[in-house]
């Protein structure tokens, strides 16, 4: 990539990227604006994908809301993402958990990682 573009991208990166992995149940702290007020909203769900790198890195969080699957894609380095809190470590053997979309109820769960959990 071009050195100038690279430099601009580097400036945007967060120094501390919150640590989480695919399959983890996370609480994403997102700042939202309502009029001129800013507040932090939570989005809790399972991380089903993480793609891209550096400034283009995104992660997808899936949750069930009122019986409907809701997925949100967040940029890892966005200043609006204040924190990503890991509630539960997931034990999965896929990098992308798109198969969860086709499952419902008890089948749509991710096993908890008990060993080696940080």
């Amino acid at each position: 990539m071009n050195a100038i573009i690279d430099k601009i991208n580097k400036e945007q990166l967060k120094e501390q990227v919150p640590e989480f992995a695919i399959g983890d149940t996370v609480k994403v702290h997102v700042t939202i604006r309502e009029g001129d007020k800013e507040r932090v909203q939570m989005f809790t769900g399972t991380v089903i994908a993480r793609s891209g790198h550096d400034i283009n890195e995104m992660f997808t969080v899936r949750r069930m809301a009122y019986g409907l699957g809701v997925e949100r894609v967040f940029p890892v380095h966005s200043p609006r993402i204040v924190d990503v809190e890991v509630i539960r470590r997931g034990d999965v053997s896929r990098a992308k958990l798109y198969y969860l979309r086709d499952r419902q109820g008890k089948d749509a769960r991710v096993r908890e990682k008990l060993r080696g959990a940080k």
């Binding site: 601009i8 945007q12 200043p79």
Partner: peptide, 8 residues
């Protein structure tokens, strides 16, 4: 033109 990217 150098290229495209995105900033916050």
């Amino acid at each position: 033109k150098i290229g495209m990217t995105h900033i916050y």
